[in-house]
Design a binder for these strands. Structure first.
Lengths: 181, 181
DNA sequence: TCGACCATGTAAACTGTTACATGATTGT
DNA sequence: ACAATCATGTAACAGTTTACATGGTCGA
């Protein structure tokens, strides 16, 4: 999708918490943020350079060991303002959530289609695994109420994702159960 | 997103039901399919030309009125096979469902953030409207059980979308209700 | 006749993925 | 020494959106 440069705002948001290298930002997509957004380092590094050229961020060189130079990026005041402006702006578009399985299902004409049972079973497994993963994330990150206060948005997102996957799993299961009718 | 050419399969799927012009295909995204996928005519027309060059589809010219030429596309045998192969193949990836509101929420650190109430209220309105729309779609298209049999996949998708929006709305409402705690 | 809609295309810009490419550090 | 990981970049390609561009049909 050619969206409205959401990646820029993710980077601004991450840097608003603390200074990070491009590598740190890349890794954030393997854990926390990876739950609901993805990005590769090949997209992140050029964007960091562009954002710096636009005055949103700046960097200082940190030398590790003998000569490994890291670029530690920080928000400029302009960047801070741009991030806050984005956060405060309305979000009037609902995303279309492009789901390839749903696409295939659309072309199933009949409830007796022999493909249906395995398609549904495959998705049930995938969504069940996702749900288990999300639940373990929830346990790991928000065992104690303190962190739930300190990262309230993150908590809400996880809660929402768990409810979404629970509903998805339940829909798949019911559909499988009713196939015989 | 640079996905795996799902648009190609949508076009194959639509043409497997009946022959269509590029304009017909474009309009399908304004109604039925628009519920869960989007595409513009500027993407569809070039792809139709490419798919014809690859032997998946063919067209005949239909003249309307004095001289308006329409291209009516049909599946070739190769196209039919490619569509069926896709439908039968596994769908092992779960889409990340990139949702800008969720993104913003991630950066809300505290449950007392003054932005939260309006953010949640805005989304509640959007998702409520979406739900109402989906429910009217369901009523219009599947009043009688016949069509539910004849377009089973479409029925399941609508059912799922309604359940998803119901859950989304309920999560938003509960979150709003609990903000005071 | 005029406006809404039918009908088809191209161009430019942007977003995202996969692959190519290089080198340093750290712990075993 | 060697492997895993840290660290940063570029290139090519693929998918998507927005804008530009043109002309025909049909009903009021």
């Amino acid at each position: 999708m050619a969206q409205k440069n959401n990646l820029k705002y993710i980077i601004l948001g991450l840097l608003s918490e603390r200074s990070l290298t491009g590598y740190d930002i890349t890794k954030a997509f393997d854990s926390d943020i990876g739950e609901f957004w993805s990005a590769n380092h090949s997209q992140i590094y050029p964007l960091l350079i562009k954002m710096e050229a636009n005055g949103l961020i700046s960097h200082e060189i940190i030398v590790t060991g003998a000569k490994l130079e890291k670029k530690l990026y920080s928000l400029t005041q302009t960047g801070t303002i741009e991030f806050k402006t984005w956060l405060q702006s309305p979000t009037p578009e609902l995303s279309a959530s492009k789901d390839e399985f749903i696409l295939k299902l659309y072309f199933i004409e009949n409830s007796t289609d022999p493909l249906l049972p395995e398609m549904l079973a495959e998705q049930l497994m995938l969504h069940h695994n996702k749900l288990v993963h999300l639940q373990s994330q929830m346990t790991n990150k928000f065992e104690n109420t303190d962190r739930k206060q300190a990262q309230f948005g993150h908590f809400l997102i996880l809660q929402h994702a768990i409810e979404r996957e629970t509903a998805y799993e339940s829909w798949l299961q019911q559909t499988i159960n009713n196939l015989g009718d």
